[in-house]
Amino acid sequence: MDKHGNSYDKALDVFEKLLDEPLQKVLSGPLPLARAVGLATTSGYRAAAIAESEGLLSRSTEGDYLRGPSTRTIGLSALGFGEFALVAEPVLIQLRQATRLTAFLAVAGNSQCMIGPHSRGRGLTFAVPQAQYYLPSLPVLDDERLAEISLSNRHEAVAAQRAAIAAVSEREDRQCIVGVLLPGLHEAATDDLRAHLRKASDLLRTQSEKLT
């Protein structure tokens, strides 16, 4: 491999670790991030600053690193629904505040449900979603374009999570959905919850239409 090849691989290694480590642990500053990524202090500071200025990372008021707004745009664009990147944040935070359940945007298709941006629930209803679930077929929607679905890990027959969802958009063989993780596997969505999901879906659709 030529020297460029090596430098590209090293850069991609750093890039991948920078974006993955904040998902694994709380990193409250450039130094912990540099250590987690395996970089020397100066290089780590520099890499963290570049990632933040490019929107790949952002920081909470506590200084903790999070994946940034650019990752949301890149990821949703790769899934074919990039138009929802800008409005996802206020919609999901309000959906979480209204329901106190973990609220998410996801793309279903190819027997998978890829979870996108999400706002985690609080208290008893706390649930951290996985990045990906097995979903053998697209959700069957009712008259209000809502559904309740079971999400399972690959090769496991038992559901790992149950979610109430609303359809937002369809493209080819994929469906963009907004949803909340239900607190138990046997819970059903209440009327209030269904109303909030309809509202979230409508807002996402309306605003993304304006953007496109």
Partner: peptide
């Protein structure tokens, strides 16, 4: 964009 880029959509919106 490839399948790895799609995984970047998984973004917690708040540090909790």
């Amino acid at each position: 964009l490839g399948p790895k880029a799609a995984q970047l959509a998984f973004v917690p919106l708040e540090a909790t």
